[in-house]
Deep mutational scan, measured.
Amino acid sequence: KFGRVHERAEGPAKILAIGTATPFHWVDQSSYPDYYFRVTNSDHLVDLKEKFRRICNRTMISKRHMFLTEEILQKNPNLCSHNEPSFDVRQDILVSEIPKLGKEAVLMAIDEWAQPKSKITHLVFCTRSGVDMPGADYQLIKLLGLSPSVQRVMMYQQGCFAGGTMLRLAKDLAENNKGARVLVVCAESSAIGFRGPSEDHPDNLIAQALFGDGAAALIIGSDPKMGLERPIFEIVTTAQTFVPNGDCHLALHLREMGLTFHCTKDVPPTIAKNVESCLIKAFEPLGISDWNSIFWILHPGGNAIVDQVESTLGLEPNKLQATRNILREYGNLSSACVLFILDEIRKKSGREGLKTSGDGLDLGVLLSFGPGLTIETVVLR
């Protein structure tokens, strides 16, 4: 008597548009150690500064975009301390800036989509910054002038794996609601975790050397309108798992001094060791076991992770080039990073006149991972 209210779509979910945005301000990685130790009044920690310089040199990052300028840091000195309470200051900045950054990426996506924004039916927003109620999803709806009846899902504090999570959720929403057009937004800022150095917490140096700011937005829907919408990728399958006891290797915690970062040297080999089982589960039903026969979007948690995944799986050097390019130009953008790589690989395919948006290949994989050593596996066509 009370059956399904919403009719299912006929076809699989497809990515119809991609937009990205970054803050205008950026830092050069080669000179960042001098800048970082100067603005945090830590130049007296000579040995720690040299250690940080070595870490920065190993990241293979060229530059990173950041909202925090020297002027902002001078006005808010607690942000430059390692342990002073600064959460309220971070909140005041990020509750406002995260939706604005997301808006810039959304406008780029809508411009490519070339359809009225009134056709957006759902919003899925993800960030690890600016936790608030009502959330960044609500603020973004107002900034864009979208209908208050847009169906919203707000996900805070997920971390680097969440780019894949957003695709998984959007696929379910698009395929189970005929005519749905799902706006996916990942907006991230390193301002939540920026803090001064400490000899007692070397993990913090890794975070300060890796993370950048950026937002990515996608429009996802099934059954694209012929002649009006141009699909870029099809989302074939999605899956999530985590490595048992992985939280002892990688975890982040909200504290009075901001978001703290805990990471062990076992993260790269542990991820590399567990990736292939995810690939087998995803691609065995499709008859694929040659990992060089697919295109790759791999989250660059750090250069060591990229190198070890490449080595463990025997990947050809060009397979992870898009990942390395984004890491070099932006650093680790947390949940937004794989979506930047997705954009990079389709643009490169277009520039080179390849037959598909995925490096000329039919199928590919998007792998994202993060806290708890959670792994998201997304098969794309």
Rank of each mutant, 00 (worst) to 15 (best):
I305F: 11
G358R: 02
P285M: 05
T374A: 13
L146H: 02
P12K: 09
V95I: 04
D362I: 00
I235H: 01
L252I: 02
C56V: 05
E352T: 12
T238Q: 05
F369I: 10
R351N: 00
G314Q: 07
Q240M: 01
N57F: 02
L144W: 06
T40N: 06
A322K: 02
N41V: 04
T121E: 02
S129K: 11
H65N: 08
A239F: 00
L354F: 05
I232S: 09
I345Y: 02
L45I: 02
V267W: 12
R38S: 10
L380Y: 03
E71D: 07
E70K: 02
S335E: 04
V95R: 11
K103Q: 13
A9L: 04
I232F: 07
G135S: 06
I375D: 09
T69P: 07
P244K: 09
Q29A: 04
V338F: 00
L361R: 11
I61C: 08
Q139S: 15
E256G: 09
M108I: 10
F37R: 13
I18Q: 03
T264K: 02
L320E: 03
L315A: 07
T356Y: 03
S293D: 15
W113S: 02
S118V: 00
N292H: 02
C337D: 05
P77A: 07
F295H: 04
T237Y: 09
C263T: 15
E70D: 05
K100T: 08
C80N: 00
E316Q: 15
K49F: 14
V89G: 10
I288N: 00
P99V: 15
K100N: 12
D307G: 05
S334K: 15
G331I: 00
G258R: 04
V5L: 05
Q321W: 10
L16V: 02
L107R: 14
A239V: 05
L279Q: 02
L101H: 09
Y32C: 08
T22K: 11
L140F: 05
L16G: 02
G130F: 04
I341D: 11
R381Y: 04
I375G: 13
N303Y: 14
S277A: 12
I294G: 09
L373H: 14
P300A: 14
G358L: 05
P244A: 11
T59W: 00
G301P: 15
R351V: 04
Q115R: 07
C278A: 10
F283R: 01
R58T: 02
F52T: 01
K63R: 06
D247H: 15
N318A: 09
L380F: 05
N318M: 15
D28S: 02
F233C: 05
D307C: 09
L342K: 15
I326S: 07
L361K: 14
L286P: 04
V275G: 13
L367T: 15
I326R: 08
L107F: 13
L123M: 07
K119V: 09
R255I: 12
D47E: 11
C80F: 07
L313M: 14
S349G: 08
A114M: 06
W296V: 10
K49H: 06
Q240E: 12
L367F: 09
L143C: 08
Y330G: 07
G145W: 00
P12I: 06
I232G: 08
R328I: 06
M133L: 13
K348L: 06
K355R: 09
K273W: 09
E344W: 10
I280R: 11
S368I: 00
Q308L: 09
S277T: 10
P244H: 05
E316T: 13
L286S: 02
G358V: 04
I120D: 00
I235D: 04
E284D: 07
I120A: 07
S368D: 15
I55T: 12
V46S: 03
S357P: 05
H253T: 10
I280V: 14
F87M: 13
L315Y: 00
N292M: 09
L315G: 02
A105G: 06
P244G: 11
R54D: 03
C248G: 13
E70S: 06
K319D: 14
V309E: 05
I120F: 01
Q29K: 13
Q115K: 05
Q139E: 15
L45N: 11
R324C: 04
C248W: 05
T374D: 12
M133I: 05
I110C: 05
I55G: 04
K1R: 07
L107I: 09
R4K: 15
F125S: 03
P148T: 07
H262N: 14
N41C: 06
N83P: 10
K273Q: 13
I294A: 09
I110P: 02
G287W: 09
N303R: 13
P231T: 13
E10G: 11
L123G: 04
V131L: 13
Y36R: 00
H65G: 07
A239C: 08
R324D: 03
L254P: 13
L73T: 10
L48A: 01
V243G: 10
V379A: 15
P134T: 11
G364D: 01
I326Q: 00
A322D: 10
A21R: 04
L339D: 13
